[in-house]
Nucleic acid binder design. Structure first.
Lengths: 115, 115
DNA sequence: GGTCGTTATATCCAAGCGTATATTACGGGC
DNA sequence: GCCCGTAATATACGCTTGGATATAACGACC
C-alpha cells in the first residue's frame, strides 16, 4: 500500500496563501486538544513561530477567526478553536475524505506507472 | 465563481519529490506541442533550468522515461513526449478532473467560509 | 569540417521559508 | 506587587528553490 493515509493533499487557496491544508488542519486539531499554540507546535515538531504564522494566516483568510487566543491569565494564556473553526475543520476533512474516496482506485493504477 | 479552472491541485508524490503535478503536466503538454524543452520553457515563462529539472524529476520517478531528448542533429536536437508519457499525462488529467467533479459542490460551500 | 540550435551542466546570486533565539506584553493567582 | 507561562514580535542564520548566465557536448546539414 503506497498511500496509507491518502496520497492526495487538499489545499484550499485564498489568493496567494493557503487558507486550509493538511498542516493547518493538524494544527487546528492539536490546538483543540492542547488549548495552546506553543504546546501544539511542540507536539507537531514545528517551531512556535511557524505555528503562530499558520494560525495567523487562517484567521486572516476566513470570515471569522478559527482560533481565539489570550495572553496572560491563569496558565499564561492560551488558544482555543472557535465553533466556526471546528466547522471549518470538519468540512475540510469531509472534502479531503471525499477526494480520497473518489480518486483511490485511479491513483492505485497511476502509482503502478511509478518506479 | 471563485475557482474557474478548479481550485484543487493534484500532486502525485514519489518519495520526497513530486512525480506529477499541475506544472509538470503543463510542461509535458508544451513539449508535446513544441518538441523542445527550451521552447516550452519560454512559452510557460520559466527558465530552461527549471524546465529541465522538472523533466529530469519526471524521468527519474516513472518506470519509463516520459520525455526522450536528443542533442545535436537537425535543429540542434529536441525533446519529444514518449507514448508512455502521453499515457501518464492522460491519466493524471483524468484524475484531476475526477477530483474536481467530486469536490466541486462542497468546495463551493467551503469557499463561502472564506473572507 | 564548419555552422547552428538544442540539450546538458556548472556557477553565482536573490528571495522565500523555517528554525532558533531573545525580548516584550499580558493578566490571573499567590 | 511579584511570579509565572503563554502569546506576540523581532532578529539572525541556514537551507532550498528558482533565475540569470556561461560553457561544453552533440549531431544533422551544408
Amino acid at each position: 500500500m503506497r498511500h496509507p493515509r491518502g496520497a492526495t493533499k487538499l489545499r484550499v487557496m485564498y489568493g496567494a496563501d493557503i487558507a486550509m491544508g493538511p498542516g493547518k488542519a493538524e494544527l487546528l486539531a492539536a490546538i483543540e486538544a492542547t488549548g495552546s499554540i506553543s504546546a501544539s507546535a511542540k507536539r507537531l515538531g514545528m517551531s512556535y513561530r511557524r505555528a503562530w504564522l499558520l494560525v495567523d494566516t487562517m484567521n486572516r483568510c476566513f470570515r471569522e477567526p478559527v482560533v481565539a487566543s489570550a495572553t496572560g491569565g491563569s496558565g499564561g494564556g492560551g488558544a482555543r478553536v472557535t465553533a466556526f473553526g471546528r466547522r471549518v475543520l470538519a468540512r475540510y476533512r469531509a472534502m479531503q475524505a471525499r477526494v480520497d474516496r473518489a480518486i483511490d482506485p485511479q491513483l492505485e493504477r497511476f502509482s503502478q506507472l511509478l518506479r
